[in-house]
């Protein structure tokens, strides 16, 4: 349904000395209707950047995004307009969506107002239903964003993203400020909608337990690349990074390891990006690594069998 080919993104910054920073590097993804995909990975590895490219909020430096066979990249805003409600992103920073001078009620109603086919009564009924759906009450409706708690604002943003009945919903750490009970409530609510409408869900999260509990398929990202992809990644991690991640999660409650001094990759290093930290590295890792199919699992490491 949504398909992305070979996405790349490079941030350029600096006025005098131009600095280029590759954030996403050759990602191919495909999402099916009714599927739940979890994307996990290092903080700063380009997950949010990837999410923004999928929903066309960032224009990829190279690569293409297709929605039901239509090529979205390069399409004009006017033509793309009818797809906009169908693919929604809940960004990592909820304050990024709501106008600080609007009541949150108005922000949630905005999608309805913009699409212009609803009457006033319908809009207010829809908005009320959405507020109830995310577990907020009337008392929150007339507040301004800064008058809500972190988790309440996050739920306002979720409500807004659900307004136009999307077919694909990308949640970029959308439940990070919610307590476990409300988080479960929201996830179950999304899952219900998924069953009702064949919604595809993409959860970008650092909560591995939650990812494991909800997802059909898991993508592990490292340094802008997908390093592992499969349906049973958490049960049988193959890539050394995935293993390190899962180990860390498992031993979180037991002991805390002070991270050792870590070296830096030499300039122009083109080998495995995990080389710097990998415990299993050998000289063969200094060559670029390809995503290989290891018995139904995609892994970017020559060692995995």
């Amino acid at each position: 349904m949504l398909k992305a080919d070979n996405l790349h993104y490079v941030y350029t910054s600096g006025l005098i000395k131009i600095v280029k920073k590759t954030a996403v590097c050759g990602v191919d993804i495909e999402f099916c209707p009714g599927e739940t995909v979890a994307i996990v990975g290092e903080s700063g590895c380009g997950k949010s950047t990837l999410a923004k490219m999928l929903v066309q909020q960032l224009v990829p430096v190279s690569g293409e995004v297709f929605f039901n066979g239509m090529k979205l990249t390069g399409m004009s805003w006017k033509n793309r307009r009818k797809f906009m409600g169908k693919i929604q992103l809940i960004p990592q920073n909820p304050a990024d969506v709501v106008d600080p001078r609007w009541t949150v009620e108005r922000s949630v109603a905005e999608p309805f107002v913009i699409c212009g086919v609803f009457s006033k009564e319908e809009i207010s009924a829809n908005v009320d239903a959405l507020f109830a759906e995310v577990g907020l009450s009337v008392e929150h409706k007339t507040r301004y964003p800064h008058e809500l708690s972190g988790g309440e604002l996050q739920r306002v943003v979720i409500a807004r993203a659900l307004a136009l009945k999307p077919e694909l919903l990308v949640c970029d750490e959308a439940t990070s400020m919610l307590d476990v009970s409300v988080q479960a409530f929201i996830v179950m609510m999304l899952k219900e909608i998924q069953i009702k409408r064949d919604l595809s869900l993409v959860f970008i999260t650092h909560d591995l337990e939650a990812a494991k509990a909800v997802s059909d398929r898991v993508l592990v990202m490292y340094a802008g690349e997908i390093v592992e992809e499969g349906t049973d990644v958490f049960d049988r991690p193959l890539h050394p990074y995935t293993r390190a991640l899962l180990d860390a999660a498992r031993y979180m409650s037991l002991e805390v390891v002070v991270p050792e001094e870590i070296g830096e990759l030499p300039d122009g290093f083109s080998g495995c990006p995990y080389y710097r930290l990998c415990r299993e590295r050998t000289d063969a890792c200094k060559k670029p690594q390809k995503l290989r199919d290891v018995s139904g699992r995609l892994v970017r490491c020559w060692k995995s069998k």
Partner: peptide, 13 residues
């Protein structure tokens, strides 16, 4: 450059 301006463009404003 604020998020909410872009956010409302992305839903078709």
């Amino acid at each position: 450059t604020k998020g909410y301006v872009r956010a409302s463009r992305w839903i078709g404003a």
